[in-house]
Design a protein around this nucleic acid. Sequence first.
RNA 1: GGGGGAUUAGCUCAGUUGGGAGAGCGCUACAAUGGCAUUGUAGAGGUCAUCGGUUCAAGUCCGUUAUCCUCCA
Length: 974
Amino acid sequence: MKTPRHDLPPTFNYRKLRLVLGDSIAPSESTCLAWNAFMKTDELREKYLAYYQSQGHSRQPSDVLVPTWDPSVLFTPAGMNQFKDHFLGKVKLEYTRATTCQKCLRTGDIENVGRTAYHHTFFEMLGNFSFGDYFKSEAISWAWEFLTSKKWLGLDPQRLSVTVYKDDDEAANIWHEKIGLPTSRIARMDEDENFWPASAPSQGPDGVCGPCSEIYFQLDNGKSVEIWNLVFTQFNRVGEPPNNLRPLPSKNIDTGMGLERTASVLQNVPTNFHIDILLPIVSAAADVCGVKYVYESENGRRLRRIADHVRACAFSVHENVIPGPKKARYVIKRLLRRAVLDGHQMGLREPFLHQLVPVVANVMQGPYPELKDTVERVAETIRKEESDFFSTIGAGLERIEKAFSSLQASGAAMVDGHEAATLYQTYGVPPELFQALAAERDFTFDWDGYREAMKKHEDISGGEKVELFQTGPLESLKESLRRTEFLGYDTTQSQAVVKGIIRQADDEQERVESTTADTELAELRIVLDQSPFYGESGGQVGDTGIIETDGGVFEVIDTQRAGELIVHLGRMKSGKLAEGDTVTARVDEGRRAAIRRAHSATHILHHALQKTVGLHAQQQGSKVDADWLRFDFTNQQALGDEQVEAIESIVCEKVRLAAPVSWKNVRLAEARQAGAMMLFGEKYPDPVRMVSMGDFSKELCGGTHVSNTGDVGEFELIAEESVSAGTRRVVALTGQRATQHRADTFQQLQALAKALNCELGQVVECTRQLQNELRSLRKRLQGGGSSSDLATPIVKSLDVSQYVGQRAALKEVARVLSASTTDLIIRIQSALDERAKLQSQVSQLSASGEVSAESLLSDANQVGDVTVVVSQTPGATPNLMRQWIDQIRQKCSAPNAVLLVSQLGDDKVLLVAGLSRQLVARGLSAGEWVGQVAPIVGGGGGGKPDLAQAGGKQPQRIPEAMQVARETIHRFLA
RNA sequence: GGGGGAUUAGCUCAGUUGGGAGAGCGCUACAAUGGCAUUGUAGAGGUCAUCGGUUCAAGUCCGUUAUCCUCCA
């Protein structure tokens, strides 16, 4: 064996690397040697899976990174996650030994990523699992053989040591006696180190748990690194110690070997980031960022962080979990922004991270060839988010500058942490950025205050706790019954036997033997041995209906699924129901038929979307209700009108075709081969149910469908909107509701026509005209210039005898009014009211004759050298009155005081007073003047010395007010 | 699920106990200069997101809804 290579040159010359591997990103010469001499990561992964296959394990593919089927986690945290139900015996086992290489994501140690040799957010975990099959002895022997045998990894046994849980003599003995490991290399550790979950015996939680045994490899520098953890789940924790660990009847093995760590050991490199599948990403990051990769440097840490985060982001976005504001999407967004911030701090000002996506796909293509297919989409999604973040940073810099100037003004020497936190929480200004800029100006940064404020924010935001393993009566029912047979594909009515009744009171669930209508208030859950009721899943809502016996009627208001159980939610209407009763379960057939129409329409819509907007329009989620459906899909822009029409026409065409709908159970691989649409994050059973429609649609789907696309009936898209960046949502109606919607549309249009007093075909034109009228009336009252009518846009004439035209007309009206289509009538009505009001004001204004600066001046009095005007201008708005006053000032060179009184409508009085500069200079105030007058008409007011306005509510006292106005100004001038 | 913020001219945004809706860029017209670039003058363009409340008076204060941004879970 070659000499150890810990002293690996800390600097890599990227140009040399490129020569070695051509287009892909190449390692340094010495690292190349290491990789040639030792095992590649792809080879390690393959060997592991092959070894356990040879020991009778079923080789299973990696589960998705973001398991939407598991509400208790956002990301797959470990290899065992996909086998949770296997461990608990809640599913039928097709195999009792499995092995996987699982892609995982954890953010708990995010602060350490890049700083230490072994921390990642994204990583792969090799694992072997036993579901009540083999236990400690085999698990330990096989691990040892795989690690040390020349045929497999061939690690030097002398450099391996292990830990066991302090009370686990069984494991210790196996290591010592069977493997022959000296006791000096078997350490006994406490429950906080060697128990899963950590410290479970004393601190909980209750449930499945067990001791573990870790395997360490000693590096050349004497330090040891943990490469494998064997978990022996053999207990059920019940309550507090002592004697709270009960042996499980069926014991399990759950192991995890860190792929990257083990590879780094095999390849003899000082950090995971230098193994053959990671160094190319680090090097590429250095290249893209235009810096040299130096291991022991701040930039080195940054580049490693970027390499880690870009892997996480690329895999998530590949699974259509795009950066966003909620949950998993938010975590990805944060990871991405952290990486981008690192780039920013190395001087980058343009998106760069997206350039690393092809590199990631390249080094990971062995186990994950599918990454190659989505490189473009993934890179574009990442580029967009990067670009958004650069804008955020840009805005942030301005805010930071502002903060600095106020700091300087106040003579502070430290950036207030609370303020930095507020800036971060409100505008996303990264504190690291703030701190870096602060350092440049010799400010210190109050990290303690910042963390304190963020902690507070966390507390305020709250959050619900999700249990790793659920407990309760439903879970125990799961274990005893396993599954409810679903009969609903073939029938909507059947006999069944009641297997369990659960009563829900407050947050507590309680299993009961029987129930009567007297307890009607309580919500009940009923589980049967078989049922025609469809439990909500795959977006399709649960069925409603009735479960009855001779002696009792139970109304089902919703149906949910719990694992493979079907749970009927509802309440007793009459009589009594008990466990063991034979009942008749009857689904509400009319509603079910409507759901079938909507669900089949969803598949057709999916097809139409892909055909119209492109293959990237993949389903993100959907909800299927009675003749109503909602469908989210990935698309950057809103759908245009033509696209919506094209989609509708494709759907309608497929409906007219009356294509047969069929379904069959096929092997998952076969379905994939057939090109059936599959969704990420969904857990598909194998075999799987494939639903086909004509020759245009194949989807994996457990839902209920019409037998012929013609049964869908009418179809209509009623909404298109944004859910989050990159995701659009459409809502559609089918069958009866679509028909009803069309009738409603027509009625609405009729109502508009009636309100506007015009023909149906004229509604759009009349609305536009009404808007124009309002505009010019307002302008006239505001005293603006002569308004030219807006150029009427050329619109294609709408044929309102057809439905499409009617709908287009309504949409156009909504656009003109910038209102939602639901309250058009209200808006039109209020527009009409406003027009009437404005018209009466205009006539009021014109009734008092032509008002102008001249006419007002001709009414003036002279008081000494001052020209005083106190006049009425009925119907005038404040704006007009101000303009007149301005004009008087221009025309009249003498000092002048003007007060205009206007009655507006029936019960409103407006007063505007103005004083020329000379009078203001003499210390007079228009505000005071108007202030003296306004109370007469029941109001108040104020303003600046040269111009003030006031209002009141008693028009009948205007003459009196004008008298007071004259007296007041006389007094002022005296 | 929760906290913070934003929404003003075509675009980017100002608007300071509530009292005349603004700037820059862009647009139109005219003029000057000219190879292009340019400069000056004038002008058009706004239900201050929505609905409601407080007030004599709301872009400004309070609440609703919508959309977007941002943070936490």
